[in-house]
Amino acid sequence: MSTTETAVADVDEAWASFQRLRTQLTGRINRELTQSTGLSEADFDILFALDESEDKSLRALALRCGLDWEKSRLSHQLRRMESRGLVAKEACIEDARGTTIVLTDAGRAAIAAARGCHAAAVSRYFGDVLSAEQLAALSSISSAVLERLAEDAPEPVHGR
């Protein structure tokens, strides 16, 4: 096998391993989160972003861009969460065309409960398994890939 063929095989093997890891780890954490708190991963992501914001609210556009979601996905998810009382939609003061998503009291309680469950699962399946050196290597790898993704990111389409 040539050096090029070996390199391609190594990339393919690493990619396949990463895909299995990502799928199984995300699935396991999501199942535990849903069983313990009733929140989906999408619920958690939105509630977490809102809870981390200074005034517990974000413009829908900022939320969508921060999550890197399509407009329709966010709209559907927010509709479901609003019907459960986790978030509320308000008119945006700065831009009458925009919407501000606000964390409700029920949303605050839900994310508070979910943070502990999520942190415990991440620790159990990720943090407790990897050494300090492996965590540092993974952080470095993630940064390198994220930098490439940022370099190659398409120009945003207005209104998307």
Rank of each mutant, 00 (worst) to 15 (best):
residue 63 L to F: 02
residue 58 L to H: 02
residue 55 D to N: 07
residue 58 L to P: 02
residue 61 L to I: 09
residue 64 R to V: 06
residue 98 G to T: 05
residue 105 D to K: 01
residue 79 R to S: 08
residue 95 D to G: 07
residue 66 G to T: 04
residue 90 E to K: 10
residue 57 S to M: 12
residue 99 T to Q: 09
residue 58 L to I: 15
residue 96 A to P: 09
residue 82 E to R: 01
residue 82 E to M: 06
residue 103 L to R: 02
residue 102 V to L: 03
residue 102 V to H: 04
residue 71 K to W: 15
residue 98 G to H: 03
residue 101 I to F: 00
residue 102 V to C: 02
residue 82 E to A: 04
residue 72 S to Q: 11
residue 60 A to N: 07
residue 86 L to D: 00
residue 55 D to Y: 05
residue 76 H to Y: 10
residue 96 A to F: 12
residue 76 H to Q: 10
residue 68 D to K: 08
residue 68 D to H: 07
residue 62 A to L: 14
residue 98 G to M: 07
residue 59 R to P: 04
residue 73 R to C: 13
residue 81 M to I: 03
residue 62 A to Y: 11
residue 102 V to Y: 04
residue 77 Q to P: 04
residue 58 L to Q: 08
residue 75 S to H: 05
residue 98 G to W: 04
residue 75 S to A: 12
residue 59 R to I: 03
residue 81 M to G: 00
residue 77 Q to N: 10
residue 99 T to S: 11
residue 72 S to I: 11
residue 56 K to Q: 12
residue 67 L to P: 04
residue 67 L to R: 04
residue 84 R to K: 10
residue 69 W to H: 09
residue 56 K to S: 09
residue 103 L to D: 00
residue 85 G to Q: 03
residue 101 I to M: 02
residue 89 K to N: 15
residue 64 R to Q: 15
residue 77 Q to R: 12
residue 103 L to N: 01
residue 69 W to Q: 03
residue 95 D to N: 09
residue 83 S to V: 05
residue 84 R to F: 03
residue 94 E to Y: 14
residue 54 E to P: 10
residue 89 K to L: 09
residue 52 E to Q: 11
residue 93 I to A: 11
residue 66 G to I: 03
residue 95 D to H: 08
residue 88 A to D: 15
residue 102 V to W: 02
residue 56 K to V: 11
residue 76 H to N: 12
residue 88 A to F: 11
residue 101 I to Y: 01
residue 64 R to S: 06
residue 76 H to W: 15
residue 83 S to K: 06
